[in-house]
Design a protein around this nucleic acid. Structure first.
Length: 796
DNA sequence: TATTCGCAAGTTTTT
DNA sequence: CTTGCGAATA
């Protein structure tokens, strides 16, 4: 068992936590500050309920992210091994319900879940069908607006356009058409999962009441982030039986843009008058220094209920605030300081996280961490599944699973190229529309469409026959289906026709997908299947991989970091326009949400925290001076270590400049020199950014500028190199050795727990995607992503 | 019908 | 700077 988890499980609960755990009947509101042991309370509470005789299958725990659900399941398994509690995201919960009751809302149980890019295509089609004038609003904007309307659970029938509102007028036409297209395609978007479920329960009171009983005890995590549809769903399922416990923190509400409604948590007490309220304010996560910064920042929010954050933890190191000349300097300094600490052996890669507002900020960091030899992991949702070649192949799977899937059909009908063109397709579409049938069905009947001439007609017929043929294999393992698709379509060959570097890369991704399918089959021997696989790829992101592998520095967005904690946290790019984001800067309410976002980021840190910004940033093609985030002015700078340049160039505001000058005068002069853009700045030796361990205080080394803090030799050459000394010795005591991805090569003998000893036959990919095909004498060839697999080398 | 070129637009966060 | 889209051309 994970030591930290174990510690948490056996540590006693404080009085507030106990009271939350023991209140199991009736509505319960748990206001839980960051690091207050919320997940622990939830899991203990469930375990307690079970010990009191509540049947565990009557308990449901709803979360926002798969990460949170996974964490909960993991801990619950330790507390109550035999429990049948269902824990998962709202979307998954709804998807499960809808598959069972699909017919009641006009769907088939094998419906497709469309992601945002799929959704966008349907919106465009709907716009085309309704011939709406899009001079004023882009398809994107219309799609966003549809999503907003759905988030408040307004169906096309209920939608009331406000007179004189142009967008509403457009919506009144496009929204029903969009919904009709989805229905015809037997597909739903993310928002539908919630809205359809609300609809289903509203229209079928018997079913609602049955489910109300069935899920007698419900817990909702991150209640501050629920939107209207989720709120209605919760109300519908907690009408007769109001054993509802919600946890949340208004200060951590960061999904307003997605329709989250703070009102839900602020007025929970009105919604459920008999409510018990518990406040968890004791923080077990962070040092006093870190909490003070968080506290002072969030105090700037006006729309807020005051809340205290207290901790018995030690003072800890001061929070650092650093201005770097450029994003490259920022990245290199952070990477080098992490590498140094790992090399010293005092830290593991998994102790660190680098957080940012927008995903593209990870680029420079990736580069720098790679150069420093630090293993890292980017938590970036569905990136892999967004690649063209992957979307193409998954579209085949979708069409096999649900032949009414319109987006999948359009995507692949001519990929690989089959000489089926725009004109033919539009005729096919028209036929389908007129006959109220799917594109696939129209394709089967293409002979009946007079406007399509012989040549394209036969091509389409061939395509339809191929899909029908593939459909015969739909019940087999996903890997088999996928391999069949590759064989039948010749996709891989078609992809690599031009022989470019990029084509090769794409072909690797295809192999990667096969491996992923294989892994899915292995992990789901009982409950697998194509439909499950497709649901998984739609609703689950790469984050599970991130959870289980601990030997990586984690990089992710501030949003993705919610609910997690790390010993040392770097938050980068604290600049005006980035955080707060420029699209939020016009609106006070949105600014407050951005502030909460930073609050969430800060409170992820257990021991040390560095906030940084850059003086220049590359934007829209060229380098611009960057202005410090206004939030940096709201922090208790006198209690932090501040590294700002002395010059007034680089676009510093007056306020900033004054602050900086004030800071400078406080600094002693008998210290080394920190060189920022040739401006000479004094920096206390103990506080040079780049050396973030507390014992630097006792170091008498005179360090140069942070960005020049490069060791003579590469700090860490590979993952393998980092396991030095005692650590490495321990790992090798039985003669086998865990290898870094780079160390794998063809011909190597490795040992697998299940398959025994085998030989590496082929290698492909790099980094965390590096994949080995290994031949086991008894089991044949298997593929592994070596960074994640439990393989060890065997000496010859 | 496929391909290529040029132009415009849009750049957040996630299930 | 990228991506996506539409028009022009082979």
């Amino acid at each position: 068992m994970d030591d930290a988890v174990h510690q948490q499980l056996i540590a006693p609960l404080n009085p507030a936590q106990q009271s939350a755990v023991k209140t199991i009947e009736g509505p319960l509101l748990i206001i839980a500050g960051p690091g207050s042991g919320k997940t622990r309370v939830i899991t203990h509470r469930i375990a307690y309920m079970i010990s009191q005789g509540v049947p565990s299958q009557k308990i449901v725990a709803l979360t926002f992210t798969n990460k949170a659900a996974e964490e909960m399941r993991k801990r619950l398994a330790l507390l109550a091994p035999e429990n049948l509690t269902w824990a998962g995201t709202f979307h998954r919960f709804c998807s499960r319900l809808l598959r069972v009751h699909a017919a009641m809302i006009g769907l088939q149980e094998n419906f497709t879940i469309y992601d945002m890019s799929d959704t966008k295509k349907v919106v465009k089609q709907a716009i085309a069908n309704t011939e709406v004038d899009t001079r004023h609003y882009s398809a994107d904007a219309i799609g966003r607006e549809i999503s907003n309307v759905k988030n408040v659970a307004i169906t096309p029938e209920k939608f009331q356009p406000r007179i004189g509102n142009v967008m509403d007028k457009i919506l009144s036409l496009v929204y029903p058409e969009y919904q009709k297209l989805l229905q015809m395609a037997n597909a739903v978007d993310f928002d539908d999962l919630l809205m359809h479920t609300v609809d289903l329960l509203t229209q079928n009171n018997e079913l609602r009441a049955a489910l109300d009983m069935r899920f007698e005890y419900m817990m909702v995590d991150e209640y501050q982030d629920t939107n209207v549809a989720q709120y209605q769903l919760i109300r519908l399922l907690n009408h007769n039986k109001q054993n509802l416990a919600v946890t949340g923190d208004p200060d951590q509400s960061i999904y307003g843009w997605r329709g989250a409604n703070i009102r839900n948590i602020l007025e929970f007490e009105k919604d459920y008058p008999q409510v018990s309220v518990v406040r968890l304010e004791q923080n077990y996560r962070s040092t006093k220094s870190i909490l003070r910064v968080a506290d002072q920042l969030i105090a700037n929010n006006v729309r807020r209920k005051k809340k205290v954050l207290v901790t018995d933890n030690d003072e800890g190191a001061q929070v650092r605030l650093v201005a770097y000349p450029s994003p490259q300097d920022e990245a290199v300094d952070i990477a080098d300081s992490i590498a140094l600490l790992i090399q010293k052996g005092s830290h593991n890669p998994s102790d660190f996280a680098v957080l940012y507002r927008t995903n593209y900020l990870s680029r420079a960091l990736e580069h720098a961490l790679g150069a420093a030899g630090v293993p890292y992991q980017i938590v970036n949702g569905h990136e892999f599944y967004q690649r063209r070649e992957i979307k193409d192949l998954v579209a085949y799977l979708h069409l096999i699973n649900n032949d009414r899937d319109m987006v999948a059909f359009e995507r692949i009908v001519n990929v690989p190229a089959r000489k089926i063109g725009k004109v033919t397709l539009s005729r096919l579409r028209n036929y389908a529309l007129e006959n109220n049938t799917s594109l696939m069905e129209a394709a089967r009947n293409v002979g009946l469409i007079e406007s399509i001439s012989a040549a394209p007609s036969s091509k389409i017929k061939q395509f339809a026959a191929m899909i029908d043929d593939l459909q015969q294999t739909a019940t087999q393992e996903v890997e088999t289906i996928l391999r069949n698709v590759l064989v039948q379509t010749g996709y891989r060959e078609w992809l690599t026709l031009d022989g470019t570097e990029e084509a090769f890369e794409r072909a690797n991704n295809v192999d990667e997908l096969v491996v992923a399918a294989q892994e899915f089959d292995n992990e789901h021997p009982e409950d697998g299947g194509l439909e499950k696989y497709l649901e998984q790829t739609a609703l689950v992101s790469d984050t599970d991989v991130f959870e289980s592998s601990s030997d990586f520095v984690t990089m992710m967005s501030l949003h993705a970091a919610k609910g997690l904690e790390f010993k040392k946290v770097f938050i980068v790019g604290l600049e005006d326009g980035i955080l707060p984001h420029e699209r939020s800067s016009s609106d006070d309410e949105q600014i407050e949400e951005e502030r909460r976002l930073l609050f969430v980021g800060i409170t992820r840190a257990q021991r040390e925290l560095q906030l940084s910004r850059c003086l220049n940033r590359f934007r829209r093609g060229s380098n611009w001076p960057a202005i410090a985030s206004r939030f940096l002015m709201e922090l208790p700078r006198e209690q932090m270590q501040v590294f700002e340049p002395s010059g007034q160039r680089h676009g510093m505001s007056d306020q900033q400049l004054q602050d900086t000058i004030a800071r400078m005068s406080d600094w002693s002069s008998d210290v080394p020199v920190y060189d920022v853009n040739e401006d000479v700045v004094s920096v206390p030796a103990s506080t040079v950014p780049g050396t973030i361990q507390p014992d630097a205080l006792h170091s008498d080394s005179t360090l140069k500028s942070p960005s020049k803090l490069k060791p003579k030799k590469p700090v860490v050459a590979s993952i393998g190199d980092m396991m030095t000394g005692a650590q490495l010795a321990a790992k090798e005591s039985d003669g086998t050795k865990r290898l870094s991805p780079e160390e794998y090569s063809i011909g190597l003998d490795v040992e697998h727990l299940q398959y025994g000893v085998g030989t590496v036959v082929t290698m492909s990919g790099d980094g965390k995607k590096r994949t080995a095909t290994i031949d086991f004498p008894e089991y044949g060839e298997k593929q592994f992503r070596v960074a994640f697999s439990n393989l060890r080398s065997v000496p010859r």
